[in-house]
Design a protein around this nucleic acid. Structure first.
Length: 194
DNA sequence: TAGAGGATTGAT
DNA sequence: TCAATCCTCTAC
């Protein structure tokens, strides 16, 4: 299980890169589901793409200002729960959005939750992976070193296998939309968009 | 308290 | 290309 010191480092971009290859695990009703993280995006209070830009704290993004190592889950487009890993120290609002997983454990339960018969792209997208792993807003603010949700070591990722690009769906961020803060594993079929 | 819009998805 | 869908946030 990754510890506090991994999450609380000052550089959210570094944490976003290093989360690639790690395993996100959830347990509900004693049933385990997990996946290898293959796509992430970094968000910081320093830039316009972030809910906490200019240190604006609201009821929704409050947990981003708490210490690294907890979950920030919010409802997007009224339909999808998006899961972020809060990073950095208390009051430094930064987080990593988990955008895609490669299924690892509990594939059958994922299929039931997604109402699919195939695993194809079942966790390829931020709104989909939360549903497949049973993550919703009750996880908001939850410690990521707990017994029903955590992140652990997975596969080793070489620097050359990381593709760096711009973030998805933040046209409103102006110049900051150009920041190269999206990372994914090269040639991995589970990435949401290539 | 009303109105606009969103870190998406899946169907057309 | 477009609708679904429901908060959240801002302005009045």
């Amino acid at each position: 299980m990754l510890s506090k010191s991994f999450f609380q480092r000052k550089n959210v971009v570094l944490v976003a890169k290093e989360l690639l290859g790690k395993t996100l695990v959830t347990v509900t009703n004693g049933l385990i589901t997990s996946g290898t993280i293959v796509e992430t995006e970094a968000y910081s209070f320093r830039e316009r793409g972030c809910h906490a830009y200019l240190n604006r704290m609201t009821e929704r993004n409050r947990v981003m200002f708490d210490e690294g190592g907890i979950a920030y889950v919010y409802l997007c487009y009224g339909i999808h729960n998006l899961f972020n890993v809060v990073t950095n120290k208390k009051s430094n609002a930064e987080a990593v959005l988990i955008r895609s997983l490669q299924p690892k454990q509990g594939e059958e339960l994922m299929k039931v939750r997604m109402r699919k018969t195939s695993l194809k792209r079942i966790t390829s997208g931020p709104g989909k992976l939360t549903k497949a792993l049973g993550i919703d807003r009750t996880h908001n603010g939850k410690n990521l070193m707990s017994s029903d949700i955590w992140i652990e070591e997975g596969i080793q990722v070489a620097r050359k296998d990381i593709v760096t690009t711009t973030r998805v769906g933040i046209d409103y961020a102006g110049e900051d939309a150009k920041l190269p803060w999206r990372f994914y594993l090269k040639d991995n079929i589970w990435v949401s968009k290539q």
